[in-house]
Computed example of a mutant assay.
Amino acid sequence: MMTEKNASFGDFFILLGFSNWPHLEVVLFVVILIFYLITLIGNLFIIILSHLDSHLHTPMYFFLSNLSFLDLCYTTSSIPHLLVNLWGPEKTISYAGCMVQLYFVLALGTAECVLLVVMSYDRYAAVCRPLHYTVLMHPRFCRLLAAASWVSGFTASALHSSFTFWIPLCGHRLVDHFFCEVPALLRLSCVDTHANELILMVMSSIFVLIPLILILTSYGAIAWTVLSMQSTTGLQKVFRTCGAHLMVASFFFIPIMCIYLQPPIRKFS
C-alpha cells in the first residue's frame, strides 16, 4: 500500500508523455522542434517588426507584440524540456523544475487568456466604435490593460500552483503527461483532492470560460456591425484583422478546455 509523502526538492517525477510510442519519439522530436523553431522565429519577427515600423505603433500591434512575447515564453516553458525527454532515455524532471514549470505554464497561459479578451475588445472598439476608438484605446489605457493581463496571470498562478504542491503525494512519481500540469499532478495524491478540483473548476471558469464568453460577445457585436456594412473593402479588412485573432483564440482555448474542464479526476489505485 502506498503511503502519503510530502515531496522535497531532492525528489523527481517521471513524465510518461509519449512513452507508449517509443518508436515515434524521434519523429515527434523532429516535428515538435520544427514547429517550435517556427513559433520562435515568427513571434520574434512580429515583435521586432512592431517595434521598428512606426506605422505599426497602434493598439492592435501593441497587443499583438505582447501576445507574441507571451506565446514565445509559454512554449519555451515546456517545449525545450519535452525535446530533451524525447531525445534522451530519461524522462525525468526534478521536483523544483516541476514547480517552476507548472507556475510559468499556468501564469503565461492565464495571462494569454486575459490578453485575448483585451484584443477582442480592441477589435470591438475599432469596428463598432470607430469614432471613439482613439479615446477608448488611449496608449496609457492600452499599457494598463497589457499590464493587467500579465499581473493577473502571475498572481493567479501563484495561488493555484501553491495549492497543487501542498497536497501529499503517493509513493509513485509517474506523471501521465509530457509536462507538469495540474490534473496530472492531482492524480498522484493519496488524499481527497475535491478542494483542489473545486479550485481548478473556479479558476478555469474565471480565466477560461468567462474570457471565452467575452470574446464571443465581442465578435458577436462585430459580426452584427459587419453585416450592416455596405463597403466590400471594409468587410474584407474587418475579416482579415478579426478572423486571424478569432482563429488564434480558438486554437488556444480548445486545448485548454479539454485539459482543465474535465470530469473529476481519477487517481491511480
Rank of each mutant, 00 (worst) to 15 (best):
T92C: 05
L49Q: 12
Y121V: 10
R140N: 12
S78F: 13
L56D: 03
S161M: 12
R123V: 01
D71F: 15
G88M: 06
Q101T: 06
S77I: 02
Y103E: 12
P89T: 15
I46T: 10
L67D: 01
M99S: 07
M137T: 12
P130N: 13
V100P: 09
V84P: 02
L115G: 03
A96S: 15
G153L: 00
D122A: 12
S120P: 07
T92G: 10
G42K: 03
V117R: 06
Y61F: 11
H160G: 14
P80M: 12
F141R: 15
R123C: 01
L136M: 09
A111L: 03
T58E: 02
L70M: 01
H160N: 15
F45G: 00
L131W: 06
S157N: 04
V151W: 10
A126I: 12
S78E: 10
R143Y: 13
A148L: 12
Y61D: 08
S77M: 05
S152L: 09
A96I: 12
V100D: 05
S157W: 01
V117G: 09
G109A: 11
F63W: 09
M60N: 15
P80H: 13
I93H: 05
A125H: 12
V118A: 02
A147M: 10
L56E: 00
A96N: 13
C113M: 04
I48S: 05
